[in-house]
Computed example of a mutant assay.
Amino acid sequence: MKIELGEWPVSGNGVELGSDVELAIEARGLVKRFDGFTAVDGVDLSVPKGSIFGILGPNGAGKTTTLRILLGIIDPDEGFRRVLGSEQPMQVARRIGYLPEERGLYPAMKAYEAIAFLASLRGVPLKEGRRKGRELLEEHGLGYAADRQIRQMSKGMAQQVQLLGTLVHEPDLVVFDEPFSGLDALNQGKLERMIRALAERGTTVIFSTHVIAHAERLCDRIAIIAGGKVPFAGPVDVARDRLRPQVRLETRQHDGPWRAAIPADARHEGAFWYFTLPETGIEPLLRALIEGDAGILSLSIERAGLHDAFVAIAGEAAARALEESAGEPR
């Protein structure tokens, strides 16, 4: 008999934020309208310090507008925000690194100078910025391109230079808007490792994405956004636990009293039964199967993935829009 519990937790849905958790970002009731269109509609967010927080949603859902409000680039029509302890985000701009979705560097600048220029916008002296620029390029395997002009670089290399320029001043908070767009699989992996390293050093990272895999692999907490609203914000595990785990069961016996232990809507495909784990849990199910002489050959319990949770929370239409966004060329 083979029993696999997968990643299904024995108890608990995760730990919600307590009053003692220190927040890097807090927002309540954010609303932003453009020419009568409501782009952000009552958004609440709480981002703990040192966490990796993802804003997950399709193109046009309100992700970029939300980030720009948090950064103070635009002001909300309604609502409250506090970033790194300040209700005026621009006052703490030097403690923030921001990578916008629309990438842009001066094409005639050399790579290390581009990083130094971005550092100078955050208060780093130009001489120090140039030194740090060369150090960062060397550290990330681009030392050979330090004196190359941006116009001479591939799109992927130029994006890496801008990314390093976002981090050169060692910010306390890093905000990435669709950071994985346009990167190949190798550089996406590098960026994921960089984000984890930032969080390990205590830096707060918040990024927007329309790719579920990045949010599922990286994030401690997420906000699902669709149509300018946030129907869920919290730990990834809690989002996944909105759906009950699924059971796959293989038995030696095809019928018997044990059949009463599995739901009436269980699917029988080939040698396996598929059904939602009963709310009573695994122990009563196992007991009934054993006492009913089912002859368990294998039993696995799989927790719902973030994609299924997104569908359950945001709806089929938002999920289709998310998939279409992921398939668009960037």
Rank of each mutant, 00 (worst) to 15 (best):
Y112T: 01
E324W: 04
G202T: 09
R134K: 15
L297K: 13
I206E: 02
R303C: 07
D20T: 15
T166S: 08
F37E: 11
T38E: 09
M1S: 13
E316T: 12
S86G: 04
G62K: 11
D75A: 14
P107M: 05
L71D: 08
V15Q: 13
I96N: 04
E170G: 02
L173C: 03
W273L: 00
D75S: 14
V92S: 04
R148G: 02
L173A: 03
V124E: 04
R244W: 10
I55N: 05
A264N: 11
L142T: 01
E102C: 00
R330E: 12
D41S: 15
G123H: 06
E139L: 12
A264Q: 14
R217I: 01
W258A: 08
K49E: 15
P125C: 08
A317T: 14
Q188C: 10
I313W: 06
F275T: 07
I69G: 08
D241M: 15
G227R: 12
D184W: 04
Q159G: 01
E279L: 13
V247A: 09
K229H: 07
V238M: 15
E250G: 00
P9M: 04
M153E: 09
P48C: 09
R103E: 00
L299A: 10
T166W: 07
Q162D: 04
V40F: 00
G270K: 05
I225V: 13
V175I: 15
V92C: 02
R148V: 10
G104K: 00
R244T: 09
Y274K: 12
L164A: 08
S181E: 12
T204S: 05
K132F: 05
G18V: 01
V40R: 08
I206A: 04
I225A: 04
E192V: 07
A111M: 03
R267T: 10
H307A: 14
V211T: 12
G104N: 07
L67F: 02
Q162H: 01
L164N: 07
R81N: 06
L45N: 09
V47T: 07
P48F: 09
S46Y: 06
M90K: 13
M194A: 06
K32H: 13
R33I: 10
P263W: 05
V168Y: 07
Y106H: 07
